[in-house]
Amino acid sequence: MSDTTVEARGLDLVFGDVAALSEIDLTVARGDFVSLIGPSGCGKTSLLRVVADLAQPTGGTILVNGTTPHAARLARAYGYVFQAPALLPWRTVERNVTLPLEIIGLPKDERRARACQQLESVGLAAFARKFPWQLSGGMQQRASIARALSLQPSLLLMDEPFGALDEITRDGLNLRLLRLWEATNLTVLFVTHSIEEAAFLSSRIVVMSARPGRIVEVIESDLPRGRDLDIRDDASFHALAHRVRTALRAGHSYG
């Protein structure tokens, strides 16, 4: 398997007269944690959907795990956490998490074991038998993360997964996600509107601008591995956040 997980060259995506993506060049190495940040409507979701083979680019090339996005999707190469939990209301939390496993045809015992493990890791073990409407918004979002992880994918696509949560819950989930990423060989493509979140989590931050949606700057993080929430008070963190903010401003003045 190649060392690049996502390789996009000159990617274009046009909806009618809206250029959602324009000449996107992006390389995501295996084990990277890449955040996409940019103003609303700049094409972050669109880029994720192209990687996931949920949208077809109108120009350029893209490889996922060295193959087409289509082949990668059929190989179940990635887990996708959507902007909303998108849990099926007629299934319990546990059966929502086992849904991907049912689809790939795992035996029942294996499914339950994996669901149990994933729910444990997002702190929802006690809620396995509950229905989605019996959970808070943050718990629902955690369940949807457990669902995406149940396939044990090598690539995790996350679209503003914590956008609707309160600050404290968000911090907790951020830390969990960071630990998971550090402990496994996971590659993460992560969309966010929060500069802090991007700076805290990422190994690289991709700053985008709107109309047409293009990449303004790619910022390498110099924060150490194994960091925790306190790093956000450090000067190095502030410097990184400042670079992201500056790039975002530059992007805004483009359009």
């Binding site: 083979d53 949920l54 999707r73 996708y80 959507f82 902007q83 998108a86 689809i103």
Partner: peptide, 12 residues
């Protein structure tokens, strides 16, 4: 819903 549909498609 569109997201639920996307979910199933993403799972092939």
């Amino acid at each position: 819903g569109a997201l639920e549909r996307d979910l199933m498609v993403s799972l092939a």
